[in-house]
Nucleic acid binder design. Structure first.
Lengths: 340, 340
DNA sequence: GCGCCTAATTTAAACGTGTAAACGAAGATT
DNA sequence: AATCTTCGTTTACACGTTTAAATTAGGCGC
């Protein structure tokens, strides 16, 4: 419909150059803000470019420069309440730095899918990635895709994670302060750094003051193994400490089914302070980890690494804090838990 | 470590060609599965490529072909429980088709950010996108970025959405069947197609059988305006129908705070059947919309459109179904709701 | 045995950029 | 006045692919 050779094509730098009566190189220099051209030429080129509705082809750009201004964000699940919170922060911060974000759901617990995700991002010319990984093995093929790991330290890589161990201690201290004595643990699988640290921090601070009457490793999915169900039903603990809020939520559901009241019959504590933990329905006492901050710091770290590939490696630990809510109450002293 | 001129560089098609003793074109033909080469050459090239750890550079590929094998997925929020469920399905199905997925959080309710997201995707050379949009205005600049819209029909575009109106009717019918008479509505903002349809479907089927004692438009965020809070507290309805499960969850929280028991004092119904609605804690009677299917169908539609840009436009409506759970109970006939 | 068709392979030109190097026209230096 | 800088601009090649067109090799009919 339009005149000339270009039917309806989106304009290229060549079109701009021709229309402005200069060379492609000049246009390129102008658009990249390298101060190489006369002010009047600069202005002219910009005007023409705007008039044509020109915008740079990022694909060609990426091919030439090797930089794409795209980062990846690998999360174990988008259905979890906590990872999307990180992902959202990552995306927003990345955009502030001029980067777009690929979000990829790597699926829970599968090292191969994690490796695949990394590989795929690299293939797509992504500049770097931020990842919450279940298995460190995933990065065996670390063919120079800059990576920032969230939620755990990892040798040779930038990382940012919350003080899981300290959080575990906070929980123990709080439990002790409330006068509890007999506690049950729903620990996460101990091959995960965060689960391990939380548990160890708790046990460390509990030593001598709390009896851990049971301690069950559960996978981080919203359903409890029957073993855990049974333990809860035994009522031999006055408080149950969960590896995260999702598990705590699941425990609350299980307790509700068993007509065990929270916190009257049993107190429950979680970890994360996910979005819904503060709602009246859950009202969960928990340890808050700064999810958004985790994502933002990771992006900053990644961008820094892209600008200076040889900068020294950073491991950022973020502080956590206890959030007291209604799922816990003081244990009347010497009150023995009544068996069913 | 490797030999030859390539220090540590990731191998290109040229390297493979040289190592295999054939031309680039041959390698390209092999890798694209165009049956143009002799079986033995084919096998040889594949072996060499594997040995070098070669994988195609998708950026260069995209530049040449104009196709990137990447689609975008624009969601109003990743924090909501329902959109990630769609996004996950989209990503998985896209991968089955050989596409990677950009997930973008456009933020709630902002036409400009939606337009920006589309623009950004287009700039990045994405082939097409799937979007849940608040405002149809966002696609004014439809410079030929193929788009499939989820959750509403849209003239001139492929779309896939659940039968919101039918769902609304299901809710009304069920309420009538339970013997309820006086109901309250927490409707979503009526500028959203889905909210409008749900409400209208409900009202349509309720006519003559149900008294809608109040009807309040609430934004789709997990907090109720005080007006809604007051209405719930009035207790003049025996059942409250919510535009979606998130609002229903919020209502349940509010009711809990007010010590109004569900379902004994008041029944609650939602819409979506999001991930947590089935949990004992919520146990929400709701209308199930096939979220995953929505995403998968959208991807299929988009891929079809990419292959055949001139195919006729499809609007897919997916059926919904009622899910009976514990948040509703029959209304004892003629029992007037007691005022506080 | 020569031309001709088909099949397999290679050559070479794009795709839209960025940028080093070449270029030319001043003004400055001798 | 001739040569040297300096600055602004252009020329030309590269990035890693795909693919149309050219080339080569084989096989077949006459």
């Amino acid at each position: 419909m339009a005149a000339g050779k270009s039917g309806e094509r989106t304009p290229t730098i060549k079109d701009v150059a021709k229309a402005a009566g200069v060379s492609q190189a000049t246009v390129s220099y102008v658009l990249n803000n390298l101060n190489k051209v006369t002010p009047e030429v600069d202005a002219h080129v910009r005007r023409v470019a705007r008039e044509l509705g020109y915008s740079r082809n990022r694909v060609a750009r990426a091919l030439k420069t090797g930089r794409n201004n795209v980062i990846g964000c690998i999360m174990p699940s988008l259905l979890s309440p906590v990872f999307p919170e990180i992902a959202q922060a990552v995306q927003q911060r990345a955009e502030e730095h001029g980067f777009a974000t690929f979000v990829i759901d790597s699926g829970l617990q599968t090292a191969t899918r994690e490796a695949e995700a990394i590989r795929m991002l690299a293939d797509h010319g992504v500049d770097g990635a931020i990842a919450v990984l279940a298995s460190p093995r995933a990065v065996s093929d670390r063919r120079a895709l800059p990576l920032v790991v969230i939620d755990q330290p990892m040798d040779g890589m930038d990382s940012v994670y919350a003080d899981h161990r300290g959080g575990g201690r906070l929980l123990a201290d709080y439990a002790i302060g409330l006068g509890h004595r007999r506690v049950g643990l729903l620990s996460g699988l101990q091959n995960l750094y965060s689960s391990r640290e939380r548990r160890e921090g708790f046990i460390e601070a509990a030593r001598g003051s709390l009896d851990i009457v049971w301690d069950i490793e559960v996978p981080l999915v919203p359903s409890l193994p029957s073993e855990a169900f049974d333990a809860l039903g035994r009522r031999d603990a006055s408080l149950v400490v969960c590896v995260n809020d999702l598990i705590a939520m699941t425990a609350l559901s299980a307790l509700r089914q068993m007509r065990i009241r929270v916190p009257e019959d049993m107190s429950v504590m979680g970890f994360d302070d996910m979005q819904w933990s503060g709602w009246p329905l859950l009202n969960l006492t928990t340890v808050r980890q700064p999810l958004g901050q985790l994502g933002r710091d990771a992006v900053d770290l990644l961008v820094r690494r892209l600008d200076a590939p040889d900068a020294e490696i950073s491991n950022i630990t973020l502080p956590v804090s206890l959030v007291e809510r209604g799922s816990t109450q003081p244990q009347v002293k010497d009150q023995e838990p009544r068996p069913t």
